[in-house]
Design a protein around this nucleic acid. Structure first.
Length: 210
DNA sequence: TGCCAGGCCGGGT
DNA sequence: ACCCGGCATGGC
């Protein structure tokens, strides 16, 4: 059985702090979490920049926009039609249940909130957990394609195991720590990008070794 | 130039 | 409960 804390320490020694999530406010982070689904972050930045230019990076502004208007602004992020709908669904929930207040949403019980987020069309486990960890500072570990890639390449877990099993791996062996979960996931992304380029991670460039 | 990027939904088995 | 096609832009 691998020691996941030691894996973290190796990654941190190799790459240092990653300063995640790039975003100025909890609301911006939540929007970014939806826009970045299966999409390069650079494209998401262009979309967010468009929203800012139109002074539209707020729950109320997006609430008042039509799906068509919103989709044009977020076009660079790809899948813009479907993401516009997803964003509107999230905003509607955010307005209805918390009157557009991050503080009120943050005040809700974490697991109850997670279930509610998963009930929104367009928000799956990774997006929900990204919002909980990075926007709301809740100790929830985020699993993504990079995390699965790194762990499976090292035979720590099979790639096709379900999301919840990957997540449980971390929750059951690490102390619930927002800072740790934040940095750890960001480091997986950093490492995972290198693995992709190399195809074979089992070389001296891999911080985790063979 | 084709491949890939910080997923998720809905319909079909 | 799983499987799969669809969704789309921009960078290399």
């Amino acid at each position: 059985m691998v020691n996941l804390l030691k894996v973290y320490q190796k990654l941190f020694q190799s790459f240092g702090p990653q300063h995640w999530w790039p975003g100025d406010s909890p609301f911006e982070i939540a929007v970014g979490a939806i826009l970045t689904q299966n999409t390069n972050w650079g494209n998401v930045e262009k979309a967010i920049s468009n929203l800012k230019k139109q002074n539209a990076l707020s729950a109320m502004a997006i609430h008042k926009m039509t799906v068509r208007e919103l989709s044009e602004l977020i076009r660079p992020s790809g899948y813009f039609n479907i993401k516009a709908k997803r964003l509107k669904c999230f905003i509607e929930f955010f307005m209805n249940d918390y009157r557009g207040s991050i503080k009120r949403m943050k005040n809700e019980d974490v697991h109850s909130l997670r279930r509610k987020l998963l009930g929104i069309s367009g928000i799956g486990p990774e997006t929900a957990d990204s919002i909980l960890l990075y926007a709301l500072k809740k100790p929830i570990f985020v699993i993504d394609a990079y995390t699965k890639r790194v762990l499976s390449r090292h035979s720590i877990m099979e790639h096709d195991e379900p999301y919840e099993r990957f997540q449980k791996l971390f929750h059951s062996s690490l102390k619930e720590d927002v800072k740790l979960f934040n940095e750890y996931h960001a480091l997986f992304v950093r490492a995972g990008k290198i693995y992709c380029k190399l195809k074979n991670p089992l070389c001296e460039k891999c911080p985790l070794g063979t």
